Every structure is written in structure tokens, then in C-alpha cells.
Simulated assay, not measured.
Amino acid sequence: MDTSTAISTAKVLGPTISLATAGMILSISAFSTPLLSSDARSQSSEKPSPSSTLPAIRFIFSRGSHVIPESAAVAAANFGFLAYHAPSTVVNVLGMEIGSRAGFIAAGVLSMAIGPITQIMLPICNNPLREMGELERQGRGSEISEDDLKEMVQKFEWLNYVRGAVILAGGMLGLAVITA
């Protein structure tokens, strides 16, 4: 593959993968976690049921951990490739003038920023949710406070929105630099 074909491919893959990954992350917060923070089987209960919520969270965590980090890395690699091959030009993005290389580097950094954000999320909400999930898996779901479970799911939802917004910003910045 010649360099011009590789650059054209990276211009498609970088923003597309970044934006698709943002869509996956934001969809979890917009559609899944609101259902998980209440008992989906009961319209009268505003508290989540450990027996239905925790297996669903375990499923979300296991699928996300196999797809999202790799997608962010591929998007960032494409932006890095574009930064390496970008001409030394200045582009106008949202009324700001930035170098095209700097724009691609920033897009790559924003795409990879979900890693540190995830590391912040782990001790705050993901680890407690995993611990609750392990109790539920062992048949000890009655030991789990529904209020604590709801609080952890809601923290996960909002921290996940932050994670999605950051990679979304990376994809949009990369796209803006490409189209400028």
C-alpha cells in the first residue's frame, strides 16, 4: 500500500473508529444504565434488583473491556499516523487556528484519554460493582444494599458519559482537521 492510500485510509478510520467507540460508550449511559438503576421487572420499584442488575453490568463490563480499549488505540494510532504525515499547515477549527499536526496529536490523545478516565472509574464505581456482582454470583445478593447499588450504577453512568464525551471530542477534532 502506498503512502497516499494509507493516509486516505487513516483519514477514514481514525474519526470513524473514534466516533463509533464514543457512540458505544454513550449508548451504554443513555440507554442501559437508566434501566439498570431501577428494577426493570417492576414499574413500582425505583431501586435496582441485584439479581437482574449485576449480571447485566457484568455483561457490559466484559464486552466493553474487549472492544473499547482496542478501538481507542486503533483510532489514536490512525491519528498519530496522520500527524506524522501531515503537512505543516494551519487549519481553522471552530474559529481557532491550529497546526494540522497538533490537531491530529490532540485527537489521538483525546481518543486514548479513556484509559486514564477508566482508571479513575475503577476504584470509584467499577470495582464496587464487580464486588457486588461477585456476591450476587455466589448467591449472596440479599447482602447487597439496593441503595448502594443504585448509587454505584448512577456514578458509573455519569463517569461513562465523561469517557464517551472525551473520545467523541477526539473523533470530532480529527474529522475537523481532516475536512479543514
Rank of each mutant, 00 (worst) to 15 (best):
Glu146Gln: 09
Ser52Asp: 08
Lys150Tyr: 04
Leu129Arg: 02
Asp39Ile: 13
Asn127Trp: 00
Pro87Tyr: 08
Gly99Asp: 08
Ser27Glu: 08
Ala30Met: 13
Tyr161Leu: 09
Met172Gly: 10
Ser100Trp: 00
Gly95Tyr: 07
Met112Thr: 14
Leu54Tyr: 11
Ser52Trp: 09
Phe104Gln: 05
Asn92Ala: 09
Glu70Leu: 10
Trp158Leu: 13
Asp2Gly: 15
Lys155Gly: 02
Leu35Gln: 06
Ser142Tyr: 07
Ser18Cys: 11
Glu157Cys: 10
Pro50Tyr: 02
Lys155Trp: 11
Glu131Asp: 15
Ser51Cys: 05
Val12His: 09
Val91Pro: 00
Ser45Gln: 04
Ser62Phe: 14
Leu13Lys: 14
Phe61Tyr: 14
Met112Ala: 15
Pro48Asp: 05
Thr179His: 08
Pro34Tyr: 10
Gly14Trp: 10
Arg41Lys: 13
Leu110Arg: 03
Pro123Trp: 03
Leu36Gly: 07
Ser62Cys: 11
Leu129Lys: 02
Ser38Arg: 15
Gln154Glu: 15
Leu175Trp: 13
Ile124Thr: 13
Arg101Met: 08
Ala30Val: 08
Val162Cys: 06
Leu168Cys: 06
Ile124Met: 07
Gly141Trp: 04
Ile178Ala: 08
Glu146Ser: 09
Glu46His: 05
Ile167Phe: 02
Arg140Val: 01
Arg63Asp: 09
Tyr161Glu: 01
Thr16Leu: 15
Ser49Cys: 08
Leu168Ser: 01
Asp147Gly: 08
Glu143Thr: 05
Thr21Tyr: 01
Arg137Trp: 04
Leu135Ala: 14
Ser44Lys: 10
Ala106Gly: 11
Ile57Val: 14
Met96Thr: 01
Ala56Gly: 11
Phe104Val: 05
Asp2His: 13
Thr3Lys: 13
Ile7Phe: 05
Gly23Glu: 02
Gly23Gln: 04
Met24Glu: 02
Leu122Thr: 07
Leu26Asn: 06
Gly99Val: 01
Pro55Asp: 03
Glu134Cys: 07
Glu157Lys: 15
Ala22Pro: 02
Phe79Ser: 07
Ala30Asp: 10
Pro34Ala: 11
Thr3His: 05
Ser4Glu: 15
Pro69Met: 09
Leu149Trp: 00
Asn160Ile: 12
Gly139Thr: 12
Ala77Asp: 05
